[in-house]
Design a binder for these strands. Structure first.
Lengths: 388, 388
DNA sequence: GACACCTGAGCAACCGTTTGCATTAATTGG
DNA sequence: CCAATTAATGCAAACGGTTGCTCAGGTGTC
């Protein structure tokens, strides 16, 4: 029913190849002819069938974006940034939600494989080896994960977690808890590793709880257990969990930050609206989305390799396309959900002023950068199985 | 590079058509042959190219879902429901975000048109006439909009708005404000129409403010103006705006619900987590997603016309596919953001019991159902241009 | 005036599938 | 034993485009 290239050819009295060229290589066709063809096309409401075009060119001009859970407010900014970046290069983004289910992730990659030029795998929950295997089927860029040989953009949550722990210990907290996220999350491991190290460096204890679903519900349900740890400050895997936790703490009769301090990770819009406002680690989600699209598309279109915020890391030339791994910096945003610990009581009235940043990046201890070291966790309460 | 049907044919020593049939019509091929083919396919990692298949069958097994703003927590439940419903029928959903931009909507429909079997247009902001025109290009199901001749699923926010207003007037409020949503929103018009009627019926005044962006920011920015109306209760276009408004009111020194009552619409998860917890109109987003997918797919796959919650409405047989319009019921969820008005003070302690529902649908005034009447609004502060 | 060169357009093969039809072999009925 | 049916497979034409190649005609050069 919709007009095809043949209809246009017939209407304008030229061969279909001329019509084709009118659209894909205008300079090869006589301006006069071109205008006639364009007029006919307009008339008939013709639009090139991108799927058919893809069949022969091999480029669909579509990008797949696989997300663990769109209901998590962390993702929309990333999605929107990726979309607008893609649109600029005449690409479209197909989003798919996996409900945090590794099996769904795999299915989706397969389903998308032939309809897109590449897939952005966002906070994947499946194993590294599976990811590597899938990457032979369709170009992949992973976000919030490091898998050797694959281009990746990660947010340096390790750094953020360290900042958060330092902030808390600086406020006098000695008993800390870490509210862990979902099994299979690279981010979760990074956070645990960095938080553990930072706590040890400050001579504070850190109890790790988890894995948990990374949602309000997940945080809410753990309130009782958090209390039982006796911690006076807790770092949550993400803002959603932190918010749920605060809610749960509240119904347990514990006041934040008076009785217990809470810090989240992500800095979702919502964290500014809770009461108390949430202290959190801001992650550059939008920059990550943009960068990931750029990395996926870097090899074809006109070069516009806009660098993301934060320092680019290693850039190993692998087989034939450069597989870079970009790490984006995070920063601590201090609001009202953190306050002085029991030791320093009466010292300060309410929330802490943003003045205290105990020696960021102490030179004695090299940052968590470098090659991924296996089994970095030490105090892990519950072992998590993550491949390689 | 990926294996094609030809590779499999060569490997298993049969013609490509046999391979094709092995997948799309297994009963037509000898079990022995079939197994051999399947083994080879497995071996080579062959997967049918859905795009190529679509070219000839005309069915892509993809559905497009166009959303005004994924960052709005109202949508994720709808999206997830649609996805799972689609998956059951071996369809995949491609989500796209328009940033509330009508032009982006149109582009997206065009881009999607050839890659999907149909598009779910969710809370569209473009004109009805444009939608009708686009529907000639690809099967459309609209959500939260009524356009003649097109299948639609709407949530009866009119009813919900009426309930909300009755709840407020029942609490003694006489000066009401309506915090309007975005231009071009059908939902917005419905709400205004119903709220206006309900307010008039209860002899209360209603000041309409808008249009506004349907976000926290949009609500926050209007706090001052809301105060200036002198209203003691306000109904917001959605929960996000209501939450933003509460925040703004708070920084103006107004307490909710003591000084002013606020009710939202949507019942997003977040509305349970704010303090005070938000009174709101629950809309069945998930059911809408499911129903929309069903309506789009009703004509092909095995019949499983699961009816959505709420009463189905008119079902006109149009050209050749039945274009039904389903209306889903909404309900009022009373929480803590609404309290007694100035007139009835000291009467009741806190929130109202759900006992008060003054004469629903007073017979003197026909309900808001029926053909859309032009210019139904009376006290509208700012005229909105919406086609047809 | 012959030659090379360039421009613009047509021809046809191809991308990876599906599917109506033709072909062959095996089975059945009479 | 032959005809008719059935089952299994092959053949080739689509689907809607793209693209290398060919070809005709016009222009410029010596």
């Amino acid at each position: 029913m919709p007009a095809t290239i043949r209809d246009v050819a017939r209407a304008s009295g030229v061969h279909i190849s001329t019509v084709s060229r009118t659209f894909s290589a205008p300079h090869l066709v006589n301006p006069e002819t071109r205008n006639r063809v364009l007029a006919c096309a307009e008339d008939l409401g013709y639009r090139p069938n991108r799927a058919a075009r893809a069949l022969i060119t091999g480029r669909t001009h579509n990008i797949g974006l696989i997300i663990a859970d769109i209901a998590n407010p962390f993702f929309p900014p990333l999605i929107k940034a990726a979309e607008s970046q893609a649109r600029q290069r005449d690409y479209h983004i197909f989003i798919a939600d996996t409900n945090e289910d590794p099996a769904a992730e795999e299915d989706l990659v397969h389903a998308l494989a032939k309809q897109v030029d590449g897939v952005l795998l966002c906070s994947p929950r499946m194993s590294n080896s599976l990811i590597e295997q899938l990457s032979r089927e369709v170009p992949l860029v992973v976000i919030n994960r490091q898998v050797t040989g694959l281009p990746a953009v990660v947010m340096d949550v390790g750094q953020g977690a360290r900042l958060a722990v330092e902030h808390l210990t600086g406020l006098g907290h000695r008993a800390l808890a870490l509210l862990g996220g979902p099994r299979g999350s690279w981010t979760n491991r990074e956070i645990r590793r960095a938080a553990t190290a930072a706590a040890r460096a400050a001579d504070a204890s850190l109890t790790v709880l988890g894995p948990n679903p990374p949602t309000e519900g997940g945080g809410l349900a753990m309130a009782e257990q958090v209390r039982r740890t006796g911690a006076t400050a807790v770092l949550a895997y993400n803002d959603l969990m932190a918010i749920g936790l605060m809610e749960g703490l509240d119904s347990l009769g514990l006041r934040v930050p008076r009785d217990i301090s809470v810090v989240g990770i992500d800095d979702i819009a919502l964290s500014r609206l809770t009461r108390p406002k949430l202290t959190t680690v801001a992650t550059p989600a939008a920059a990550a989305g943009r960068t990931a699209v750029d990395m996926l598309l870097q090899h074809d279109g006109s070069a516009s390799a806009r660098a993301g915020r934060g320092g680019g890391r290693a850039s190993t030339t692998d087989d034939r396309r450069t597989t870079a791994q970009v790490s984006l910096q995070t920063e601590l945003v201090i609001r009202d959900s953190t306050g002085v610990g029991p030791a320093a009581s009466a010292d300060r009235p309410g929330a802490a002023a943003p003045a205290d940043r105990p020696g960021a990046a102490s030179p004695a201890r090299p940052g968590p950068h470098g090659h991924p070291d296996p089994g970095g966790a030490t105090t892990a309460a519950t072992p998590e199985s993550v491949a390689s």
